[in-house]
Every structure is written in structure tokens, then in C-alpha cells.
């Protein structure tokens, strides 16, 4: 498979009133052509910042202090803002979280959808609007012709998100970055939007980076999953690897707090105690250690490297070190291991 995008050793700092926040502290991942990669993690873990760094859409006080973002092998971080403009909304585009606020309230939606076409292609306004209408139909806006001249406030939340998606795909981008596109929507509408994204992926063959804090959504759309905590990845692998053979205690915690079809009435949903660390002074060792029931002395001293679990499955926890004691994960995780066996995987560390 082709790696169309590769992020290497990304570090992002934010200059704030209280000091420098080290929001991203060395993130590596890649995106293969045609696949969907999900990045999951709780609020503040740095998912959004990571993907915004790809397009260099950080807030003014944010700087990418280290790292590379390779797009077809070409480092985007070396490009000027003007050169990036040619890529944004064209080859790489983005869908935002809140459809209620991401559309310009004073511009008709026809114009908003046509805008990326006019910016990146040498087309007439008339043709662009015509194309915008087709795309609006494609994303499922009923009667698009009549609604081209309407303003955002005349649409429902779900419809607005469809419009935001239309804006993102109007140029058939190679990479679509979806930043929590379903979080602000009703559950029924969430499913529709996920289906729409899957359908569009098939039709235009785009690769998707999908950000969410909702593991339930991930299973439905992703090929691979990366779990993020406190500005670093802690585990990544295929959906089956991460869902049914999780290795990092943080991933355990996330999965343990998620209801499944197997969850019976007597089962309790567990939450992860504590709060994420303050990234003004990032901890020296594993950032999750203070909340980790399985933490070891080494966790507080040294950041764990990524240990290979299987061919495409890695996790950054000292528990995978050969010298580490064998621990028993929570019951719900053990159930998942059982299921993993039936899926043909192997629980044993490699």
C-alpha cells in the first residue's frame, strides 16, 4: 500500500498566558491510500492539533517545533503559507466538528460550496455553482437547486454538516480530515453522516483521517486506529488489534468505559479515574502513569518506547517489556481477548 501521508516526530507547542504548553510531544503515524485512519482520545489529548498541523491551521500562538509531515514524500512543513493554500481545500481538505458554527452565516451555501472550486480551478462562476449544486445533491441535500441561495441558518444541524462535507469534497481531495464530524449531532444523524462518508470514500476514493473520542463510531468506519493520550500516541493497529487485543492500560480504560452488545445489566461501566496531566510541565515518564492502576516504577521515570505486538500493531507501555510482571487486564478486556482468538488473532506477545 502507498503511504500518501506520513507524520514523523511531530512536536507542537503553544505559547499561553501561563507558559509554554507542549501539546504534541512526538507523534508518528502514516496514512495509506484509500484507507480510513481513526485517531481516538479524550478531549485535550491533542488529536485536533495533530491533524491541524498537517494543514498548518494552528492558532496563532501555536508552533510546530519539530517534525515532518510528508505528503507523497514531500515535507509540507517546509512549504510557505501560500504554497499550503494551493493544497488546502484541494488535495487535502477538512471537515469540522460543529456544523452550527462552521458555515459563514452571511453567505449563501451555494457560494460557500463553490468557493473551493473557484479558488483552485480555472472555472467560471456559473460552472462552479452548477458543480456545487451537483455536490450538494451528492451529499444528500434535498432539492439543491432551490436551496443554493439559502443561508446556513435555514438548515438543520445534520444538513449543515452535509454542506460542510460538500465543501470539503467538492474538489475530490486525496485526503479528507474529519475532526469529530459527528460529535455535535444527534445519534441518528451521526449514523447517517458516517454512512455518507463511507459512501463518498467509495465514490471518490479519498483517504480519511477520522478524529473522534467515541470508540463506538470508530468501529463503523475505520481500517486502522491510533489511540492518543496527552500529546502522544499510546497504541496503534488495525481496528481488530486495538479493539480486541488492546495492550496499553489507557486503551483498556477507554474500552472498559464503552458499552458493547455483550454488556449485561449487571456489568458496570468503568471510568478512568483522575484527569490528564498538565502539559505545561509534561511528566518525565509515561503520562498515563498517575491514572494507571498498573503503573510501575519505571513508568514514572522513563517514557516507554513502542513495543511491537504484531505486524502492524504497536503499543507504548512498559508492560510489554519482557521483564515486566504479567498483569490481569479488566474483565471486559479479557472477554475481548477471547473474541480476538475467534477472529484468528494471537494474544501472545510477539
Amino acid at each position: 500500500m502507498d503511504k500518501i501521508l506520513e507524520v514523523k516526530n511531530l512536536h507542537v507547542d503553544f505559547d499561553t498566558y501561563n507558559g509554554v504548553v507542549h501539546a504534541i510531544r512526538g507523534v508518528d503515524f502514516h496514512l495509506n491510500a484509500g484507507e480510513t485512519l481513526a485517531i481516538v482520545g479524550e478531549s485535550g489529548s491533542g488529536k485536533s492539533i495533530t491533524v491541524r498541523s498537517i494543514l498548518q491551521l494552528l492558532a496563532k500562538n501555536g508552533t510546530i517545533s519539530q517534525g515532518e509531515v510528508l505528503y507523497h514524500g514531500d515535507d509540507l512543513l517546509q512549504r510557505s503559507d501560500k504554497e499550503m493554500d494551493k493544497l488546502r481545500g484541494n488535495k487535502i481538505s477538512m471537515i469540522f466538528q460543529d456544523p452550527m458554527t462552521s458555515l459563514d452565516p452571511t453567505m449563501t451555501i451555494g457560494k460557500q460550496v463553490a468557493e473551493p472550486l473557484l479558488i483552485h480551478n480555472n472555472v467560471s462562476k456559473k460552472d462552479a455553482l452548477k458543480r456545487a449544486e451537483e455536490v450538494l445533491r451528492l451529499v444528500g441535500i434535498p432539492n439543491p437547486k432551490a436551496r443554493m441561495n439559502d443561508y446556513p441558518h435555514q438548515f438543520s444541524g445534520g444538513q449543515r454538516q452535509r454542506i460542510v462535507i460538500a465543501i470539503a469534497i467538492v474538489n475530490y481531495p486525496e485526503i479528507l480530515i474529519a475532526d469529530e464530524p459527528t460529535t455535535a449531532l444527534d445519534v441518528t444523524v451521526q449514523a447517517q453522516i458516517i454512512d455518507l462518508l463511507k459512501e463518498l470514500q467509495q465514490k471518490i476514493g479519498t483517504s480519511i483521517i477520522f478524529i473522534t473520542h467515541d470508540l463506538g463510531v470508530v468501529a463503523g468506519i475505520a481500517d486502522r486506529v491510533a489511540v492518543m493520550y496527552a500529546g502522544r500516541l499510546v497504541e496503534y493497529g488495525s481496528v481488530n488489534d486495538v479493539f480486541y487485543n488492546p495492550q496499553h492500560p489507557y486503551t483498556w480504560g477507554l474500552l472498559d468505559s464503552m458499552p458493547t452488545l455483550d454488556t449485561s445489566e449487571s456489568d458496570r461501566l468503568n471510568s478512568i479515574p483522575g484527569t490528564p496531566p498538565n502539559l505545561l510541565n509534561p511528566p518525565k515518564g509515561d503520562a498515563f502513569a498517575p491514572r494507571n492502576a498498573y503503573a510501575m516504577a519505571i513508568d514514572e521515570e522513563e517514557q516507554p518506547p513502542f513495543f511491537k505486538v504484531s505486524k502492524h500493531h504497536y503499543a507504548a507501555t512498559w508492560l510489554l517489556h519482557p521483564d515486566a510482571p504479567k498483569v490481569t487486564p479488566p474483565a471486559s478486556i479479557l472477554k475481548r481477548y477471547e473474541k480476538f482468538k475467534t477472529l484468528g488473532g494471537n494474544v501472545e506477545n510477539v
Binding site: 492502576a293 510501575m296 522513563e302 513495543f307
Partner: peptide, 21 residues
Amino acid sequence: MEQIPQIPKDKFKLIHDENNA
């Protein structure tokens, strides 16, 4: 990843008990 770092064994003791106060 490929190379497993050498760490003194006593560092691998679990430090948290039941009380997570």
C-alpha cells in the same frame, strides 16, 4: 522498537495498590 531497552528489574514493580486516592 526493535531493540528492547535494558532496565533494572526492580523498576518493574507495580506501584499502585487499591487506594487511588
